[in-house]
Design a protein around this nucleic acid. Sequence first.
DNA 1: TTTTTTTATAATAATATAATAACACTTTTA
DNA 2: TAAAAGTGTTATTATATTATTATAAAAAAA
Lengths: 223, 223
Amino acid sequence: MKKILIVEDEEKIRKELEIFLNKNGFKAKGLEKFDNTVEDILRENADLILLDINLPYIDGLYICKELRKTSNVPIIMLTSRDTEIDELISLNYGADQYVTKPYNIQILLAKIIGLLKRSQNAGSNQDKLNCENFILNVSQSAIEKEDKKIELTKNEFRILYYLVINKNKIVSREDIINYLWESESFIDDNTLTVNMKRLRDKLEELDLQDIIETKRGQGYILR
Amino acid sequence: MKKILIVEDEEKIRKELEIFLNKNGFKAKGLEKFDNTVEDILRENADLILLDINLPYIDGLYICKELRKTSNVPIIMLTSRDTEIDELISLNYGADQYVTKPYNIQILLAKIIGLLKRSQNAGSNQDKLNCENFILNVSQSAIEKEDKKIELTKNEFRILYYLVINKNKIVSREDIINYLWESESFIDDNTLTVNMKRLRDKLEELDLQDIIETKRGQGYILR
DNA sequence: TTTTTTTATAATAATATAATAACACTTTTA
DNA sequence: TAAAAGTGTTATTATATTATTATAAAAAAA
């Protein structure tokens, strides 16, 4: 049974969609929190995503673009505006289909079925990031190399993920801290170092200890 | 008016694109010869490049990679197979967008517009600065020349960066000191000299020792 | 020329930054 | 409820980078 993730903040619409899709042979689930949206979405490992453009805090286009960096999961954008430009922009950001609210639910269903069929033919779109020396399995938050696999904790994963999407660029410790802890109560600068150490320890188990270089005074860089 | 360079060997498609883009407010030009492709492309100094993967003699991936060494120009890859795109994305050749042939010309247009808009905004955080004799790789804080690369420490980088953005202008020692150490406890005037020396030593490894001239009593100048 | 000022070079010392290890607390899992 | 896993804190150690110091060289001024 195909799993559909609904990313929509209006609870009424979300529930409605959930019920409708569940009735029609899908395993639909609505996202409830919107703080770590991109990662949360990826972790759900859905077969298709319904993504509202107008979300609180972050905007849907941004999420869409971020998802596309690491995943080929089919995405249908939901929006309330009905201009051609929006459609083009959505498609440009990597969405596969586009639906305006209020949507005809039968048409939505048809688009979902169509997309899923096509994506099946396109082969397995696993959420894996190919990184030269290893593979970052996003949906399992694990590192894979040859036939070995080791699992990462949340922090370890997020650090590595951030380095991967900034591969070959120096990222400052400050940036990483902001990415991991956002506006949280101020975090000791050393806790990053410690988390880094733990990540590296795990990488070492796959002989990858030195893919993360430290640029003293500047940050870290993933090779 | 934004200039778009079309790198596509099939003349029919090339002409078609040229006409269509010209009609839509761009200055489109097709590349005619494919012998010194990379150089020819760079010479055109386009704002965006449409790059076919299946070119005669060289392949588009190689070109894309080469372009990325020295330029951040937006690149849209054209490919004939749908499955190729997955590979492309995972291999991360540095293209910004991908389009399969036969392409929906409206979507292509949307992607072009989107990319151009984004690249304009990206503006100042350019990560490579082209400096005649060498390239200053900002995101790796390194100097590149031909196929050699040497990495800089924080101070070395900052001095060079300051000289680069003031290329061909004399910058006083005082200015550099203020830039590096801001309001910090007053720094011995000699420490700049020493840092300068270290920078020059690294530059020498790339035979660039004398691009920084000292103007006694006035400061330094980068040629 | 000689003297003075400014910059370069080399060697050493200092320090800031990051790595490591051990512990404490919380959350999750069994 | 106990055990395990995960995370943040503190304390200590290591080290890369940077500053200092001392001396030499070069340029400008006398």
